[in-house]
């Protein structure tokens, strides 16, 4: 898995600064504004960025979609170009009304933990994948970056 990740060509993506630049405060603002702006709710299934806070260490690691250039999640989608789409900037995004909740994109994600969230529900029609789209329709750019109180998130130079 590690080798596979290391050799990947990545698109521009949200990155966490090293602690000597800025130390994540663990406030989860990135998760919160992500789900608020995409879905109008706050909840663990609705975030597209993930804060892993050390229980004893209180050191937090932020996981985000790496926007792989070969986008295996997009390729795995049985409804590609309807549910999982690719825009002119190479950003893979989801049109949820077409997502059937098959979870193949989550399984196709090469990263551990997977960077695609998934709404689990007894109601099959509510099962949806949730993936970072870099707030592609938001003029201010990714909300997680804008609302990070310690500016420890930024866009990578790659892509």
């Amino acid at each position: 898995m590690v080798e596979k990740q290391a050799s990947r060509i990545l698109g521009r993506h949200v990155v966490q600064s090293p602690p000597e630049v800025s130390f994540c405060a663990g406030c989860r603002a990135c998760e919160i504004v992500c789900s608020l702006l995409h879905d109008g709710v706050v909840g663990p299934y609705y975030k597209r960025i993930f804060v892993d806070k050390g229980t004893r260490s209180m050191v937090s690691t932020v996981y985000s979609c790496q926007h792989c250039a070969d986008h295996p999640c997009y390729l795995a989608c049985p409804r590609k170009d309807q549910a999982m789409c690719l825009d002119e900037n190479g950003i893979v995004y989801i049109q949820e009304e077409y997502c059937n909740g098959c979870k193949r994109c989550v399984k196709a994600c090469v990263f551990d933990p997977p960077r695609i969230n998934y709404v689990q529900s007894k109601d099959k029609s509510k099962r949806k994948a949730k993936k970072c789209d870099l707030c592609r329709n938001r003029p201010e750019g990714p909300a997680c970056i804008e609302f990070c109180q310690v500016s420890c998130l930024s866009l990578s130079d790659q892509g």
Partner: peptide, 13 residues
């Protein structure tokens, strides 16, 4: 020394 937030969703550290 680092600074961290006390509670879920706070905007301070």
């Amino acid at each position: 020394r680092a600074q961290v937030a006390c509670s879920y969703g706070c905007n301070q550290h």
